[in-house]
Design a protein around this nucleic acid. Structure first.
Lengths: 159, 159
DNA sequence: CATAATATCCCATGGTATCCCATTAAGGGT
DNA sequence: ACCCTTAATGGGATACCATGGGATATTATG
């Protein structure tokens, strides 16, 4: 049950390094990954990051699409072609590439957000904005989900 | 079938630590959890806490949503990204994060409220206020529920 | 091939979390 | 009523972590 949870804000130093939060490092170490796999989010100013768990999720996502098909090429380009593997130094730090900084708007501070099998990297202010939006939408989603379940139960009783 | 029941009030010490009630500790130990999983309630000044049981509930809630979808990202952010896993020390205590204290209004005292598979963490006065409100609503709910059951029974007899 | 530029290693430091032990209080059994 | 166990709490000592920066290795460039 080792999953990326919680969120942490760390600072970039003058050399552009940032510490991966210690709890995340331990998970990555247990996964046996060297290098932090980073894949820019398609629709947000965030980067998906992780180890084998994330790689596996991507592979399984691509799997149903036949190789050499248009869809496969497009998805592979977005999910793998634009990704990179950042080197983790002896002190558990990485240097963010220019591409990641441009995509996220990160300049001097990073927030790491746990998503279970992966985590995301954000510029703190952008994450704050997304978070309040996500909180609202999560409540709406929950309502519609429980309404649907309720309807299913009653249909079941009626039968 | 060990469930979190009853409620307990404990104090924070000068370092911000608070003892998890011993009966809860035993349940967590049997679940084989290390770390207390804490998830801020979406609509109340409370925090849901527990071990594997709670994590499992959240994972099952996320499971039907495909990875890399909008809904999944939103729910993962709200349910995992904003949660944390608090370390339980050798004496069965945790330190509440600033985020939890801010969300709940806790300053020097905590009440632990059993909810079966999980328990909640409240600031004592806020919990008292919520409790009387919940008691009223429970009566109203019971009425509407039993009316609904009655109707269903009669419909069944009629058929 | 030389030299600059960059990346990685290695060690130091301050702040905080965790360990470990002591004290106090509250049952439980005899 | 008394001992014995268990729980909650307090506090000093220790370990860990994020961060900074000098030293060394690696890569790029003229």
């Amino acid at each position: 049950m080792d999953d990326f949870v919680s969120n942490y804000v760390n600072r970039l130093d003058s050399k552009g390094r940032v510490s991966i939060p210690a709890p995340y490092r331990q998970i990555l170490a247990r996964e046996g990954t060297e290098g932090l796999f980073c894949s820019p989010s398609m629709d947000r100013a965030a980067v998906d990051a992780g180890g084998h768990g994330l790689r596996k999720a991507i592979d399984e996502y691509l799997e149903p699409f036949d190789v050499f098909t248009e869809e496969r090429e497009i998805l592979a380009t977005a999910l793998l072609g634009e990704s990179e593997s950042l080197k983790i130094d002896k002190d558990g730090r990485v240097v963010l590439s220019e591409k990641i900084k441009a995509h996220t708007g990160i300049t001097d501070s990073v927030v790491f957000v746990g998503h279970g099998y992966k985590f995301q990297i954000w510029q703190p202010e952008k994450y704050e904005a997304f978070k309040v939006e996500a909180a609202k939408e999560a409540i709406a989603l929950r309502k519609s989900l429980s309404a649907r379940r309720q309807a299913l139960r009653q249909a079941g009783e009626g039968a």
